[in-house]
């Protein structure tokens, strides 16, 4: 990649271009705005972006859309398949519809906004990313979540935050069942302030006082045989 600015603004039609051609164009651009049409549920669209480009995808995407994103802002006007924005480092990825399982998995930073629902394992092994879900999240969401914030405006499925480390979980609706070592925690002023800020950034209209906070009880941080039933 050269350091020279490569600006482009245009429409990438995936019914005419190969995925490689489209991704090469996006990855090479250092700024600009692009629209992808006819995504047709293809996998790995707009993955590996490094620069502050803006990408709008008109339609549904397959697996790993915007995977490992850095700096770019990617919006999917539709639904997203498995592993949306997996391992995101920075930037913003937004889905106007629903997201399949493992959305935001292992993400290190940035913001993932799912305006609809997210399926199972949303935020699995998250490492610093902020994820905001307008609807519900499926079972085992935030499994082994290490750092970052998962904000759910709807309900959470079973085993939320199982084996969680230091990530923070905020749920406005019901939690079907908390996972092992995940407990409800006090909502302090700094948490309310954080929620107000991230909800604003995510474009979500909700009152922070309606949320409850969950996190790690930290009983699994050191192996103890008396905890064997929890493993």
């Amino acid at each position: 990649m050269t350091t020279a600015t490569m600006t482009n603004t245009g429409v990438l039609d995936l019914s005419a271009l190969s995925l490689r051609e489209a991704n090469e164009t996006l990855q090479a651009a250092t700024e600009g705005a692009f629209t992808i049409v006819n995504p047709g549920g293809r996998h790995a669209i707009a993955c590996g972006l490094e620069h502050p480009v803006s990408v709008t995808i008109e339609g549904h995407t397959g697996y790993y859309c915007a995977g490992m994103n850095k700096n770019a802002d990617v919006t999917i006007r539709g639904n997203a398949g498995t592993g949306l924005a997996e391992n995101i480092m920075s930037g913003t990825v937004r889905v106007t519809g629903d997201a399949s399982q493992a959305a935001g998995a292992t993400g290190h930073g940035g913001l993932v906004v799912i305006e609809g629902n997210a399926s199972a394992r949303c935020g699995i092994s998250m490492k610093g990313v902020d994820i905001v879900v307008g609807g519900n999240v499926g079972h085992m969401s935030a499994f082994m979540a290490q750092a970052g914030n998962l904000v759910v405006l709807g309900d959470a499925g079973e085993d939320l935050g199982d084996s969680i480390y230091e990530a923070r979980l905020f749920v406005r609706g019901t939690v079907a069942r908390l996972g092992t070592d995940c407990v409800e925690k006090e909502m302090r002023p700094e948490h309310l302030a954080f929620l107000a800020d991230i909800l604003k950034r995510a474009g979500m209209d909700a009152d922070p006082r309606d949320f409850r906070r969950y996190g790690s009880a930290r009983t699994l941080y050191h192996f103890k045989i008396d905890n064997a039933g929890a493993y």
Partner: peptide, 28 residues
């Protein structure tokens, strides 16, 4: 703290998924 490593990948299950995962790695 003790640091656990998962036995399954977080974002794919089975060889069909892995084929897509590899495609993503190649694209990146």
């Amino acid at each position: 703290i003790d640091q656990r490593s998962a036995c399954r990948h977080p974002d794919w299950t089975g060889p069909d998924d892995l084929e897509i995962k590899i495609q993503e790695l190649r694209e990146i």
